[in-house]
């Protein structure tokens, strides 16, 4: 029986237990970032809410997972500290949708901004190009099967499929 670990808004979770399934439920404009280390067979997932940390943000604020830049940097630093380079990692991202369709918001399409910011941060820190299920206008649940090194995405209309 898989052990489902929920990764809530603005959270980052880690696991090296083969039975664990890291899960970011119902991503809308948020972006789930999943990273898996094939050597250690360990993985991590972040549930990013906003593209950019505010000016004056410091690590003492601890909400690393909320912003694309700080979440990806935190993931990077943690893998590097564990003695693993990031070049061989498997990377997936999901979400970044415009769920509130029909609404013209002053801030624009935050889902697209989140996706762009996550991709940019991953590229800057040397991660592989991620597999993606992003954009459009529907919610998704992202799962990382830690023991298998695979990620899936589930939506109401489309069911579950590999990313």
């Amino acid at each position: 029986m898989p052990n489902l670990i929920a990764v809530g808004l603005a959270e980052i979770k880690w696991s090296a237990s083969p039975g664990d399934v890291l899960t970011a439920f119902s991503l809308g404009s948020c972006v789930g970032v999943a990273i898996w280390d094939p050597e250690r067979r360990a993985g991590a997932m972040a549930h990013v809410v906003l593209p950019q940390s505010p000016s004056g943000w410091t690590e003492s604020m601890a909400d690393f997972g909320k912003y694309a830049d700080t979440a990806v940097r935190h993931l990077h630093n943690r893998f590097v500290r564990n003695g693993t380079g990031v070049a061989g990692m498997r990377v997936w991202i999901a979400g970044g949708a415009h769920v509130l369709r029909g609404v013209d918001l002053p801030g624009g399409d935050i889902g697209a901004s989140n996706t762009k910011a996550v991709l940019e941060a991953l590229r800057q820190l040397g991660f592989n190009e991620p597999r993606k299920s992003v954009g459009e206008d529907y919610g998704r649940t992202m799962r990382l099967y830690v023991g298998e090194g695979r990620a899936t995405v589930y939506s109401v209309a489309r069911g579950e499929s590999e990313i």
Binding site: S26, L27, G28, L50, V99, L100, R101, L105, G111, Y138
Partner: peptide
């Protein structure tokens, strides 16, 4: 406007837009 989707996706999106 009316949206039909996962509740978490709608609420999470609104949180993002609220800044």
């Amino acid at each position: 406007v009316m949206v039909r989707d996962m509740s978490g996706a709608i609420l999470g999106s609104a949180m993002s837009y609220s800044g």
